[in-house]
Structure formats: C-alpha cells, structure tokens
Amino acid sequence: MLKTTLVVLAVVGLCGCSTVKPWERDLLAKPQMALDSDPLQTAFEDHIYFSKEASSGGRGFGGGGCGCN
C-alpha cells in the first residue's frame, strides 16, 4: 500500500567523513592484523604472568581461575 510519495529533486549535502573503505580493509583483514592473532598463546602467557606477577588482565578479564595466588 502506498502511503506517501516524496520526490526529492535536490541533492542533499554529503557527509565528508573520511573512513576506511571496505576495499581498503585488505590489510586489516589479514590474520596477523587481528588484535589477538593467537588466542592460545595469549592464554598461555596470561596464565604464566598471572602466576608470577601481581598484574593481570588488561586485554581481557584478569581473573585467571588459578589457585596460584
């Protein structure tokens, strides 16, 4: 059902924002550009540093679920 018809004859001003176009995302799409490119390695490291240092988390949650208090 046709409710309303609007004919727009004028061109509306265009947004001038500069964004990375999709075809320019070729580099960002590479696996080595992933923020966490090797999650298992990250998990290992988080566990090692959690058990040896007073800091944890940052990238993700710092819980640890480890009894190595």
Binding site: M1, L2, K3, T4, T5, L6, V7, V8, A10, V11
Partner: peptide, 11 residues
C-alpha cells in the same frame, strides 16, 4: 530528469 526519488511504501 531527477536525481533521487524517495517513496514510502507499506513498512
């Protein structure tokens, strides 16, 4: 001649 036509249809 027109540049852009907007039509509101059902939903």
């Amino acid at each position: 001649t027109y540049q852009l036509q907007l039509t509101q249809l059902d939903g």
